Simulated scan of single mutants.
Amino acid sequence: MTLTEIIETFKTRFNSSKIMDSLEKVASFNSESDSGSGEKDSEVYLENNPYVNSSGSYVKSPGISRITRDEREPLIKLTNVWKIYQMGEVEFAALKGIDLEIYEGEFLVVLGPSGSGKSTLMNLLGCLDIPSEGTVYLNSEDISELDESELARIRGQMIGFIFQSFNLIPTLSTEENVLLPLEFQEENREAARKKASYLLDIVGLSNKKKNLPSQLSGGQRQRVAIARSLAVNPPIILADEPTGNLDTKTGDYILKFLDGLHEREGKTIIIVTHDLDLVKYATRVVYIRDGEIEKIEERRKNGTEE
C-alpha cells in the first residue's frame, strides 16, 4: 500500500485538520510548572503542526505502509485463543479459549488480578506474541502465523505502547526516545525532529528534550512514553498499567490525556490493569481471571453498567 493511499485512508477516517489540534486541547500537562511553556492559541499553533500541511492534509512521509481494514469487521478479533507455556514436563495454560472483539473507537479496560492472564492477553493484542491455538485478527488480517519481522511492522505502524515501567532507552535523551519509532519507519530526519519537538511541547516537556530518563521524574518519563506512543499517529494506544508507578495526581493527568485522545480523536484505547478505579473511563470492561473471560461489561463513561 502506497503512502498516498495510507494518507487518503486516514483522511477518510479522521478530520485531519483537527488531529493534532485536538491533542493540544486535551494536553492538560501544559499547565504544570515544569512545562516550560504557557497557554497557546491552538489555531495559531496549528500552523506549526508537522503532521498536517497548510491545507489540512497529512504530510507525506516515506517508508510507512499500513494494512487496510474492512470497516464491517472488528478492529481486533480473538477467536478461541489459547496460550500454553511449557514448564519442564508440565504445560501451563495462561489463556483458555478467549473470544473477544474490539471495535475502532472503544475505550476498553481489561481488568484482572495478578496471574489472571491479562498481561499475556496484552501481548497478543499488541502483536508482541502469537497464540498457541486459535486466531488473532488485526484489521481483518490473521496475525497468528506471521513471522517476527511482519509482527514488528504491524506494531510499529498500528499500535502505540505505554508501559508501566516506561521502557525508555536510558542512554537516549527525551527527544531521541520519541524519535525512535519514526526512525524505525525511515522518517525523514528533519521531519521526524519536528514531530518529536511538537509532541514534547504538547505533553509539556519542551524544556526537557536533552535530558536523559534518569534526570526525569516518574510522571515526566510516562509523558515521554506517551509522546513516543503518538509519534507515528497510530490508531491504537495500548497501555499496560499506565499509572502503576505514578502518584495519584500524575496518574489522573495521564488518564485524562488518554481519555481526551479517545473522546476528541476517536483513537482506540486499550488499558490492561488491576486498578478498579480505571473502569470509570471505559466504554467496555473485560473481566479476566485464571486465563478466562469472566464477563464483559458495557458501560457509560464516568457512569455505570448499561
Rank of each mutant, 00 (worst) to 15 (best):
M20A: 07
L216I: 07
R228S: 13
C127A: 15
E104N: 13
T250D: 12
T68S: 14
T2E: 12
E190M: 01
T248G: 13
A282L: 15
Y51W: 13
K210N: 15
N123H: 08
Y85S: 08
I102H: 04
K208C: 11
D277I: 04
V26A: 07
E71D: 13
F107D: 04
K209R: 14
V110A: 07
D240L: 11
E298D: 13
T79Q: 14
G63D: 04
A282G: 08
E106Q: 09
G105P: 05
G126H: 02
T273Q: 09
A231Y: 06
R289V: 03
G88C: 12
V44R: 01
A227T: 05
H262E: 07
N302W: 08
V110D: 00
Y45F: 10
T4H: 12
F14L: 14
V90I: 09
I19C: 02
G303M: 14
S116G: 09
G38Q: 15
L179E: 04
T9E: 07
S65I: 09
K194V: 00
Q157D: 05
I143Q: 04
L128P: 06
K11P: 08
R189T: 02
V110S: 01
R289T: 07
V26I: 05
F92I: 06
S42Y: 05
V286T: 11
K40S: 06
Q220P: 09
S54E: 10
G251S: 09
L3I: 14
R223Q: 02
G117M: 07
I159S: 00
E297F: 12
